[in-house]
Design a protein around this nucleic acid. Sequence first.
DNA 1: ATTGTAAACGAAAATCATTTTCGTTTATAG
DNA 2: CTATAAACGAAAATGATTTTCGTTTACAAT
Lengths: 139, 139
Amino acid sequence: MNKYYEMLKQQNLKKTPKRVEILRIMKQSTSYFSPLEIWDLLKEKFQKVGLPTVYRILQQFQEIGIVSSIQKDNNQLYYFLCSIRQDHHHFICRKCHKVSCVQYCDFDNIKQLVEDQLGSKAETHFLQIEGLCKECRES
Amino acid sequence: MNKYYEMLKQQNLKKTPKRVEILRIMKQSTSYFSPLEIWDLLKEKFQKVGLPTVYRILQQFQEIGIVSSIQKDNNQLYYFLCSIRQDHHHFICRKCHKVSCVQYCDFDNIKQLVEDQLGSKAETHFLQIEGLCKECRES
DNA sequence: ATTGTAAACGAAAATCATTTTCGTTTATAG
DNA sequence: CTATAAACGAAAATGATTTTCGTTTACAAT
């Protein structure tokens, strides 16, 4: 966890009990979480904790690169622990909601295609893959 | 527009003035629209038109494949006209919000990578590319 | 150890996009 | 022309996310 505490300190974010517990919760699981789910789990440890606190912390974690978010059709926020800096993408299991990093990025090729086809300059891209993870497809 | 009217008829959706006008508005532009923006433009033609109607029609258009939606950080809905059936992806200009289709899809390769790396079965994927379009980068 | 201060927090309310309900109107097939 | 399923508007509901603000806390400096 020291890596995360360092990242917090570098951004002038304090190592508070709520932040520590949210990190602990997210480290325990490979799934993505909604703010509400995190809140429910936080309440097991703290008698007083507000939902806005959860939203704030998750946003901050995303800003400093501790968590990433996934996109869903219902347009709600979901977060999972991922602080890999290298370009990569995520595979999400439809059934168990596990998130796995996929070491793959075709951005150089995409950039060139966009340049050739449209004359446009590609700056960022977002790729998300969904399906059934190894465990879920076997059961 | 006949193509769209055919698509409506096939799904038992009537060719109503509101649907016709929304199609006309979206055909006029290469940008994506929020439901609110569509509503504002609709109100120029109809004195009485509800925002839920706009939401309903855009949802239906998406379901039958007349429009696609894009993902933004603010988690709001944005739609643009696209009824290409072939696998492809979209380039979005950060500045003018124009959406262009990119004839490219690496899904077979992604499927194989996911299989090899994770043992998981990729079923769908979502790729969105952002940057500056030809016109905006030149100005 | 004490203190000053910026950061964090909780509670409550606000915001705001989106959806639902329901009674009325309309498109269109027969 | 009529029947009927679909569409619509108005109003209210929903529900996720954010803001405000007064209080508390972490922690660096003393």
